[in-house]
Design a protein around this nucleic acid. Sequence first.
RNA 1: UGAGCUAUGGUGUAACGGUAGCACUACUGAUUUUGGUUCAGUCAGUUAAGGUUCGAAUCCUUAUAGCUCAACCA
Length: 559
Amino acid sequence: MSEEKHLNFIEEIIKEDLESGKYSSIVTRFPPEPNGYLHIGHAKSICLNFGLAQKFGGYTNLRFDDTNPVTEDVEYVDSIKEDIKWLGFQWQNELYASDYFNILYSFAVELIKKNLAYVDDLTPDEIAASKGTPTEPGKDSPNRNRSIEENLRLFEEMRDGKYGDGAKVLRAKIDMASMNMHMRDPIMYRIKKAAHHRTGDAWNIYPMYDFAHGQSDSIEKVTHSICTLEFIPHRELYDWFIDKLEIFPSHQYEFARLNLTYTVMSKRKLLQLVQDKYVESWDDPRMPTLSAMRRRGYTPEAIRDFCDRIGVAKRENLIDVGLLEFCVREHLNKVALRRMVVFDPLKVVITNYPDSMEVEMLTGEDNPEDAESDSREIPFGKELYIEQEDFMENPPKKYFRLFPGGMVRLKHAYIIKCEEVIKDENGNIKELHCTYIPESKSGSDTSGIHVKGTLHWVAVQNAVTAEIRLYDRLFKVENPGSEEGDFKDYINMDSLQIVKTVYAEPALKNAKFNERYQFLRKGYFTLDAKETYNRLVFNRTVTLKDTWAKESKKVQPIS
RNA sequence: UGAGCUAUGGUGUAACGGUAGCACUACUGAUUUUGGUUCAGUCAGUUAAGGUUCGAAUCCUUAUAGCUCAACCA
């Protein structure tokens, strides 16, 4: 693991910092704002930050960037913590930017005293107008040269609540002509007479991101402060505050955020999907949030593996969701319990099977990939269900499922031969009459017969019923965000398919939450923690790879 | 079009002036009591043009393309 040959550019930097003796160990942080749910993009950042500390020695803080009381809530704090723990990471310290409000205030006073900050009375519009444009310099505020004393007094009054929201701000005195718009006297503090979820009504003023983030990093002695590309223009300011305040020099590094095909990642768009009822909730299994993926049956191992495989770099990327699905399948293949479930039943009667009273029990391994795994008993019977799609009256070439006169093996059971197709008065297939070959029993097959197809099945008498929910991609296009018009125009309206009644082998009666199942030949499923009360509801985590689907399209293209 | 960041197979990511590699996808074939898994293999790439150098994906110049920046959001 630690012998990884290729380091990403951040690991490269850390390695050099450690070798040069700049640091003896590292400190990173994951800094969410508690105003929404974590998604797979956050997982990339979490895996990066926590992974770096694990790999190079050091620790990671969880710090909530809670400097805007009007958008934040403890509800989000709790869900964020749950998601990080679920992913398998443990933070060293649980911290809040709001813990630093006092010291941040004193930092501001210090800058005023150094004549590097001033109180401005301009309105938001006026400030915006005087900022200039990227091609034209801005203009100094008329309040820019207030005396230090006056600034001190005014700032104190802002804190004490003497002015209303928006009446005044504290600005850094830097350069209104800077090429970097963020250096044109950025706002450090604004008045917000709002209750904060942690500090209550203690404050009338709150620091802006730029005045809180770097200093919080510094206070925590964060060595490598890692964020996404859009913060590159903020770095100059980040460094400026640290430099003027003469505090611990944390350094900011930026990487490209994760983009995934067939979904959207921005909080704004995800919120719209929920509000406009395109999905049920934030943890609707089609959402890219971690809570949704958990509910859908994705495993933390798979997500970590995915984050590992996608790498870390500075170029924009759009990663094929197929890679995520690959990671999920790869892990699930190793841990999922195999079970048989018929989605769309076709009755099969074994005409030569004895009408005995006792039920014949067969044995099926829980997981052929895991030698340690257990097995379960499966009842057989004279009447069975197989899948409608596993029988064809007029099969195409290369079809090796059941057809009139054809033979298949029933998984863990016997080879059967289709003798007769029974139809109703409308000509629809009602049931199949088959014969079985007694000496072909699984595990003790002396029949000498070899068949190409093996089908899953369920004994009618012992079947338990369940509901399943099949999920498809939420969008019809790879990159809905970059498409013309509204991203919502590209929503796949068939992304959820509910099958009210499927027939499962009895072992599934005792299905457990957090247990993963592979419904043989159908896909990976897990019990829905939200919908399962006194009935069984399974979510399809991901399908199995289906080469036959591709093949059959080639053989007889369907419109 | 000011400034900044970035350009390597279909996708993602390595190669740190010296053989363009790995993974996913796609496609072959073998194995298989899951058309799954596993195994073997195939296709496929340095944005362009100049320059430096014995040698350039890598350094320089120019061009082109994409992304970002003017919230009292983070």
